[in-house]
Design a protein around this nucleic acid. Sequence first.
DNA 1: CTGAAAGCGCTAACAT
DNA 2: ATGTTAGCGCTTTCAG
Lengths: 331, 331
Amino acid sequence: MGATIIDVANKCGYSKATVSRAFISPETVSEAAKERVYAAAKELNYTPNTIARALVRQHTENIAFIIHEKQYPTLLNPFYAPVLEAVMQEAAKRNYSVFIATSNDVQLPNGDVYIKKHMDGVIFAGQTDVNAVEELRRQNIPVVMLNHELDLKNLVSVTVEHFQGAVQATTHLYECGHKKIGLLAGRFSDQVCEARLNGYMSVLATHDLPVDPRFIVDIEPTMEEAETVFAKILQLPDRPTAFFCTNDTIAAGAVKAALRAGLRVPADIAIVGFDDSIVSRTIEPELTTIRIDAAVMGKIAAQQLFALINKEELQMTHIKIPTSLVVRKTT
Amino acid sequence: MGATIIDVANKCGYSKATVSRAFISPETVSEAAKERVYAAAKELNYTPNTIARALVRQHTENIAFIIHEKQYPTLLNPFYAPVLEAVMQEAAKRNYSVFIATSNDVQLPNGDVYIKKHMDGVIFAGQTDVNAVEELRRQNIPVVMLNHELDLKNLVSVTVEHFQGAVQATTHLYECGHKKIGLLAGRFSDQVCEARLNGYMSVLATHDLPVDPRFIVDIEPTMEEAETVFAKILQLPDRPTAFFCTNDTIAAGAVKAALRAGLRVPADIAIVGFDDSIVSRTIEPELTTIRIDAAVMGKIAAQQLFALINKEELQMTHIKIPTSLVVRKTT
DNA sequence: CTGAAAGCGCTAACAT
DNA sequence: ATGTTAGCGCTTTCAG
């Protein structure tokens, strides 16, 4: 269809090699040649064929951002969206493009892991199948894990200080004077859940606060589910005066349930979320939450990946993003 | 690095061609051969090189979803996220991967349009530079426009019945008994703005409602801006009792401003949004809004693109997604 | 500064 | 059913 390098070579009277150079390293080509090459290229509507180039160069300048199926839909996930954006930005700086995929693209129907497209590197977001990662590495494709750790040698990961965040959230509630603090936990990956639960429990222990299993509940992490479940919790006798919700979406659901029940937030019930995602500022009153800087998270993940791709020495293999308390209107 | 088809051919004693066939059309290869090929492949950790394949096949099984820079960040945009998800799903069905990019990836620093990667087709979401589209088509790459029309021959597009939607919104407000209805319009593309404004105006005209320029305002389409602007509007004398906001994010900002001003929604001020995005169900009270089925929008766009890629006859070149009123709690 | 030529890894006729 | 072979379009030594 399109013109090839040969067409422009013929048209301008130089060889393929010179045409190629004119595009790749113009400084090694005479002015005269450049002029004629560019003119011919323009006239023929020539554009270098990146896939041919990739074949010889052995790299594609593509990276993939892969979401484990269980986390799908991810783009709708207010937590991952800004990290993907940051990744895209880092990629753009280096002239890389990003593919976005689910684990489907990595697994063959027969269960084998298949690298459907050639990627120079891959970022796995969220809970991820070990096989997929191992397979990729077996193909010498650099991998960085985001928000999930796998027990693989030299695997680089960037995760979050979940424990610390949970401690900040719970402590804040305690410092606001709450003695009975409940937990509304979303069923994310075990790693995340466990760390956040531990953080919460440790604060209760530190301050000798009561641990009431009726008020430590697991739910599917959707706003609807949070709303439904929380509406019931609100009717229980001796319910806590405050709840730590393990993400903003859940917290928003809780706030909605409280508001609908005619309660005042935070006067009648205090809530703190987690992530500082966009939903924390959408709900009114706005959520007090634990901030994770998703942009730096994405940026660092991308930087690590590019370091790997360029075979640079990595300073650290496990990076943990710190969290911080953002006090708004629900506490 | 990785093993090539030759390595496995040597190892299993068959030719390259047979190995290739074993992967592409297993039914044309003897059981014995398949067995040995797969064994050798497994042992060598062989995986077909997709870029070599793409070079000979002249197609990559990749499509791109491109967002015009002005719409960035798009993934955060609650309207496009579900559209993209639908596109990804359609692509996955056909074993295609999707590339996500901003107009940066399409434009060279010098302003030329450069097709950085070879894509079998491209979906442009939102306001888009004509040059980019023309250049793509010059390279014979199928394009479908999403939510934006360009005056190019045979350009296929899928857009929204913006006018109809605005009429539905405004009419609903009128039917709720409102006589003074304001407009809080986000500065999207001219096409969208104009259609929605016209829809609004036509309803005012139909019912002989007053047109007050003080209450027909343009803003940047962010929640913060909506909040700020709306807070001021609320203080103006003789303000409308209802507002049509041209998207849910703006509507949410308006609701927040009203709530903060101590107003009851909808008793003191009614609001209707547009899009039926996730934010319409995040804010409390939940937004009455105009629904656009983003999933079908994405699906149709993808289907049109694949039809183009497969050189099928298209039934329609301009598809408009209908809108519908969703009454919730703000009216 | 420019050209010739050897691949990059794979597919798809065309033979056998 | 399997093998041979000619590219796909480009980059990159290596010569000149």
